[in-house]
C-alpha cells in the first residue's frame, strides 16, 4: 500500500526483472494462499469442500447468501460499525481536549496528572477485564452499546500523540489570541485542531481498526445474537457450525470485506497512523 516511485536505485532489465517478478508473484501467492483457499471454499457447494480444496469447483453465491441469512451477519456488521465509529469519535474528542489541557494550559498538578495518564498506557486490557465485566454488568450494560463502547471512550495514547503536536504551537500564538479575547475553546477549534488534522486522521484510523478488531471484550459483555459484533459473531458461528466449514468461511469473507474497503479508502491515514508511533531516530 505505501506509495510508488520512491527508491529507484537500479533499473532492472531483462532476466533480472523477470526473476524479480517471478519472485514477487511467488511470494504474493504464498501470502494470499489462506485467503485463496477461503474464497474457494466459500464459493463451493457444501458437499464439495473436501474434494480438491485447492481447485475452484463451480461458482455459487448460495453459501455466501446462506451465511448472510443464517449468520445474522448484517446485524453483526452494523454493531461493529456503530461500536467502532462511536469509540473512534469519542477517543478523538476526549484526546483533543486532554492533550490541549496538558500542552497549552498551565495548572497545578499537571505533571502528576500527565504521569497518571501515561501510566494507564502500561496497563494491558487483560488486567482489567474481570473487574470491568463486573462493572458493566452492575450498570446493566450487558448486551448494550454502552457496554461495548464506554470503557474505551478515552485513550492515553491519543492524548500523548496529540500533545506532542500541540507542543509545537508557538507560545506567542496563544498569547496573541488571548489578547484578542479568543478563549481556549475558540483557540482549540480554530488554531489547534486544524494543526493536528493529519494526526487526527491517523489516530482515527488506528482507533477504528482496534475497536473493530476487539475480540475478548465483546465476547464477555454480549449474550444475545443481536448485540454480537462481527468478531464475537464469527466465534459463535465457527463454534456452532463446524459441520459446514464453507459456511464459516463465507462468514469470514463477509466479515472481512468492509474493513478492506475502509482501509483502501483511508490507506494514507492508516500508514501515517501505523508509523506515527514509530520512533523518530
Amino acid at each position: 500500500m505505501p506509495g510508488d516511485g520512491t527508491t529507484t536505485y537500479d533499473t532492472p532489465i531483462g532476466w533480472r526483472a523477470v526473476g524479480r517478478y517471478g519472485l514477487l508473484v511467488l511470494v504474493a501467492a504464498l501470502v494470499l494462499f489462506p485467503v485463496y483457499t477461503t474464497v474457494v471454499a466459500a464459493l463451493k457447494e457444501g458437499n464439495q469442500v473436501l474434494n480438491n480444496p485447492l481447485v475452484p469447483d463451480g461458482f455459487t453465491l448460495r453459501i455466501l447468501a446462506k451465511a448472510w441469512d443464517e449468520g445474522n451477519l448484517g446485524r453483526y456488521l452494523l454493531n461493529s460499525g456503530v461500536v467502532a465509529v462511536v469509540i473512534t469519535a469519542a477517543q478523538l474528542l476526549t484526546s483533543v481536549l486532554s492533550a490541549y489541557a496538558f500542552a497549552i494550559l498551565d495548572f497545578p498538578g499537571r505533571t502528576i496528572m500527565f504521569g497518571v495518564f501515561l501510566a494507564t498506557l502500561l496497563v494491558p486490557l487483560e488486567a482489567t477485564l474481570v473487574v470491568n465485566r463486573r462493572t458493566v454488568d452492575s450498570l446493566g450494560w450487558i448486551n448494550s452499546y454502552q457496554g461495548l463502547t464506554v470503557p474505551f471512550l478515552a485513550t492515553a495514547f491519543g492524548t500523548f500523540l496529540l500533545r506532542q503536536v500541540f507542543l509545537t504551537l508557538p507560545r506567542d500564538l496563544r498569547d496573541a489570541a488571548a489578547i484578542d479575547g479568543v478563549g481556549h475553546l475558540g483557540f482549540l477549534r480554530h488554531v489547534a485542531v486544524p494543526l493536528v488534522r493529519p494526526t487526527l486522521g491517523a489516530m482515527a484510523m488506528l482507533s477504528f481498526l482496534s475497536a473493530w478488531n476487539q475480540y475478548l471484550w465483546p465476547n464477555l459483555v454480549t449474550t444475545e445474537s443481536d448485540m454480537y459484533t462481527v468478531q464475537s459473531g464469527l466465534k459463535q458461528i465457527s463454534e456452532a457450525r463446524l459441520d459446514e466449514p464453507n459456511l464459516v468461511m463465507a462468514g469470514t469473507i463477509i466479515a472481512a470485506i468492509p474493513i478492506v474497503v475502509v482501509l483502501l479508502i483511508f490507506q494514507r491515514s492508516l500508514i501515517r497512523g501505523l508509523t506515527s508511533g514509530a520512533v523518530k531516530g
Binding site: 449474550t223 444475545e224 445474537s225 466465534k235 459463535q236 463454534e239 456452532a240
Partner: peptide
C-alpha cells in the same frame, strides 16, 4: 432462543 456457542460458553456466561 439464544445460542451461546457451546455448553462451556453457556456455563461461563
Amino acid at each position: 432462543l439464544e445460542n451461546q456457542g457451546g455448553y462451556n460458553q453457556t456455563i461461563d456466561k
